[in-house]
Design a protein around this nucleic acid. Structure first.
Lengths: 336, 336
DNA sequence: GTGAAAGCGCTAACAG
DNA sequence: CTGTTAGCGCTTTCAC
């Protein structure tokens, strides 16, 4: 591969001039520019970003730590991130950490050693340990899809309010015995999706003067099978729900199948609302009523924010909450 | 950030010794090792992979070009790739090229300028132009999920045979008027999924002495809505199918909904088989009979192969075909 | 405008 | 075993 020296030699100029030409410096005469470009073309030369990164101490690379890219939610967020990075000429280094603390730390270390300009971080819960490592190492970071009480930039949605809205919709359509299928609770810390959404659900029930039955609160694993099992348990219990709020679409799908396999119908016998608005929620039958999360936009905003931080640009609001939206489809019956 | 010089100075040794210690060279005495490690710890030093890459002309980074990471198929493959890379200490740089030639070329160029050690490439169709660019630039590459007639390593499945098997299953269960919903054909080149699967379908029909109706061959866009529309068209046509083979699960879901919305039932009135075996195919109702592609394994094998190529290891078989598998579930009725 | 030269942080002969 | 030194390919003063 041709290097800057080769080009300089062939063009009969110094490497400084070659460098100037390739960086569009005004300090390069047209004649020099011409000679350099010609020589470069002849040699098939392109500057090595690697060497440039070392010299400039800037890699134009962003590290991306997600729990699992095969989860459609993250895949969509990542897509938004990548599109923005592409526009601003950044690369992304992808890491799957499975929400495991040691993997996360290992990846953060690795990304730092590769001099990434910043990190977009996704996790279940942003702990003090996370905060420590990022701030002690002076790593520029923004959280995506997660809020935190620490002074760290993030872009997310208001999970409490979103769950409140979903539950309220169920209530407003005449449902009273509303069950919820949430995800792992991890010892009840706020800012965790499941915890916040559970709170939102309870608040809505309380505000409506409805009774909250412990039997109608089930934990699952965010997967379809988990939703299926949780729903089945609920259906077999003593308190029969007239509606189920599953805090992810995939679990909602599982719940609908459980209802079906239990010999009941959705929405005729039991209404279901989901959360996320993944592609399939529109396509399944019954089409799923759900809370739409702006996944792609989350990625876009997070990436844009991080790039601004890297460029030391002023940012008006470092902690942004994106709007969620209730999408009414067919999985919820109007009872009154 | 501390550099190798800082450590050398503090430890009272040369930078060469520091380098040796951090590369686990046997040419470093225990006493030196101890001093270096102590100094490094004190300074919080970690070697810069960037500088190391420049010096060694090896980045331990693999470029990953996929059409779209938000497509669950690629997300799963990528997950396999990343897991292997993690084990072998490689990073991945993710690029979404949307199957657009110019984006692909731009990314290839960029990855090359970043000195990636190799590229795992996914595309609809591996063209001569692709071949040219990879070979002329001497870029190590392996295709994932795609075969080719060019001399390029790949790992994929046998699409013709897989489609043949799916169709044959439908035939063996007594179906005769079998429709197919395929993806874009792009001018009929082999090695394209849709083309190969269509061929497999036709071969199975011919081998069984069944008539192939043009009206039962529909093109869609690999999305659920596309499958829905294509199926609806087919149902409204003159020739009524007794089964539909959709060459992706997502399109199969669309087709099943179309059947449902058309007032018929699957599998009672029309059987459906899909392709891919995505997570949801097991969870939907009716559970989908489909061809399982080893997506994760595809990523694993591709990554392993590329790393071997990078390391100049001997590879017995550079073009590997992974096994597909028919997964029988409930979307297909046994007619005889 | 241009070039010489000193880095960026590391590896790898080479000599001792 | 250890240190010196010359790169890796580029950017960036600083003179001219």
């Amino acid at each position: 591969m041709a290097t800057i020296d080769d080009v300089a030699r062939l063009a009969g100029v110094s490497i400084a001039t070659v460098s100037r030409v390739f960086n569009n410096s005004p300090l390069a005469s047209d004649s020099a520019r011409e000679k350099v470009l010609k020589a470069a073309k002849e040699l098939g030369y392109e500057p090595s970003m690697l060497a440039r990164s070392l010299a400039m101490k800037k890699t134009n690379t962003i590290g991306l730590i997600v729990p699992d890219i095969s989860n459609p939610f993250y895949a969509e967020v990542v897509r938004g991130i990548e599109d923005i990075c592409n526009i601003y000429n950044y690369n992304i280094t992808l890491c799957n950490a499975d929400n495991k603390r040691d993997k996360e730390l290992q990846y953060i270390e690795m990304l730092k050693n590769r001099w990434v300009d910043g990190i977009i971080f996704h996790c279940d819960y942003f702990s003090e340990e996370h905060y420590e490592i990022f701030s002690s190492r002076n790593i520029k970071v923004v959280l995506a899809g997660r809020t935190t009480t620490f002074d760290v930039p993030y872009v997310a949605i208001d999970n409490k309010k979103a769950a409140y809205d979903a539950t309220k919709y169920l209530i407003s359509t005449g449902h009273k015995k509303i069950g919820i299928i949430h995800g792992p609770l991890n010892g009840m810390k706020e800012t965790v999706d499941s915890v916040d959404r559970l709170i939102g659900y309870k608040n809505a029930m309380i505000d409506a003067g409805l009774k909250i039955y412990d039997e109608l609160i089930k934990e699952a694993n965010f997967k379809a099978k988990g939703g299926y099992k949780a729903a089945l348990e609920m259906l077999k219990g003593d308190i029969k729900p007239d509606a189920i709020f599953a805090i992810s679409d995939v679990m909602a799908m599982g719940a609908i199948n459980a209802i079906f396999d239990f010999g009941l119908k959705c929405p005729d016998d039991i209404s279901v609302v989901g959360f996320d608005n993944i592609d399939l929620s529109e396509v399944m039958r019954p089409a799923l009523t759900t809370i739409a999360q702006p996944m792609y936009d989350m990625g876009v905003v997070a990436a844009r924010m991080l790039i601004k931080i890297i460029d030391n640009e002023q940012i008006s609001n470092k902690q942004v909450i994106l709007e969620h939206k209730l999408i009414v489809r067919d999985s919820c019956k109007i009872l009154k």
